[in-house]
Design a protein around this nucleic acid. Structure first.
Lengths: 176, 176
DNA sequence: TAATTTATGTCAATAGTGCTGACATAAATT
DNA sequence: AATTTATGTCAGCACTATTGACATAAATTA
């Protein structure tokens, strides 16, 4: 509607910069970095007929073996209907198995199979290589700053969740 | 086929850690950080009936006003068919205008309208706020390391492209 | 000038991932 | 016995991306 009233809106010919105090550089870097970071596993996944969603499920089932469907949904922040298709495919293809919960028999504990573990490692390997290359020249201090930055980008209420993953140094949250 | 042969594959009950030398912490942090980083603009975009693809187009048209369709495709690394719908919607709604190329009249230079500029800033604002909060306590040195890390995560052949964006300090590439 | 290439646009079909809403079952809880 | 919880499933829709094919206008080349 707005542009229909006669004259076309004028083109702005100046670039947005950091003028407004907005950090366009890091905004762009996040986009480019994440895009290329996911491109390596995406290529491998395509060979298996899988997508990025399968990768995420495989990843967290391998990181938190025995987690229930509800817990997985809580980590991924997606709906059970979204998970259903992807999880079913991974189970049918023998990458993940379900085990009836010992205490609560309604629950399905999710575990990787050897095949699932192997694929997870194959998907993580190029990502880890990229990270190592990007950390070249960085010491423990710099690495800690980078991890701290990434963690601080996460919504505060979800940071505790990250600490529950294996091999993560908890507590080093700044601010409060 | 693999799991159909009689016995079901055994569940692996141990978590993958950094054992294999793989950096699972940063892999996960990249996922969580990017997911939450994009959630703020996603909410705003939904009010306009737009998606993440519209955000990217708006962003780079504002950062590189006057870039051609071909140049935009090269930055985003998507196909022209993917861009078409999104760009058409942004033009029809008056966020972007096309100007015939002065040298080559086949080209369409893309510029934001005032409306497009305003929306771009509104989308960038919460992301920038999140970044500033995540950089709390970091000095110029730490910020430089973080930017260097993110840039080094990008495929080498595309890093030069980043330097052409306004307000980016070029050259500070490490390695070679 | 004529032929070709380039920049852009468009139509059609498909895939992957997410969503909402509705309904079903079994097991736990009240 | 009634209700709630954990999970699964069906159906439909939205967004973003893909490939392939074809069309037009303008630039370049022969």
């Amino acid at each position: 509607m707005a542009q229909r009233s006669g004259a076309t809106a004028q083109p702005i010919r100046t670039a947005v910069t950091a003028d407004e105090g907005i950090d366009f550089s890091i905004i762009e870097l996040m986009y480019f970095a994440y895009r290329d970071f996911t491109s390596d596993p995406d290529q491998i996944l395509a060979e298996y007929g899988f997508g990025r969603a399968h990768h995420r499920v495989l990843h967290f089932v391998n990181r938190l073996p025995g987690l229930t469907v509800a817990e997985l949904l809580d980590v991924l922040k997606i709906t059970k209907q979204s998970l259903a298709r992807v999880l079913k495919q991974l189970i049918d293809a023998g990458y993940i198995v379900q085990v009836q919960g010992p205490r609560d028999r309604r629950q399905r504990e999710l575990y990787p199979t050897p095949k699932g573990r192997t694929l997870t490692l194959a998907l993580a390997r190029p990502q880890s290589r990229r990270i190592h290359a990007a950390l070249e020249g960085a010491g423990e201090t710099e690495r800690a700053w980078i991890e701290r930055f990434l963690k601080a980008m996460v919504n505060p209420e979800l940071r505790a969740q990250i600490d529950h993953l294996p091999g993560n140094t908890p507590g080093k949250d700044h601010g409060e």
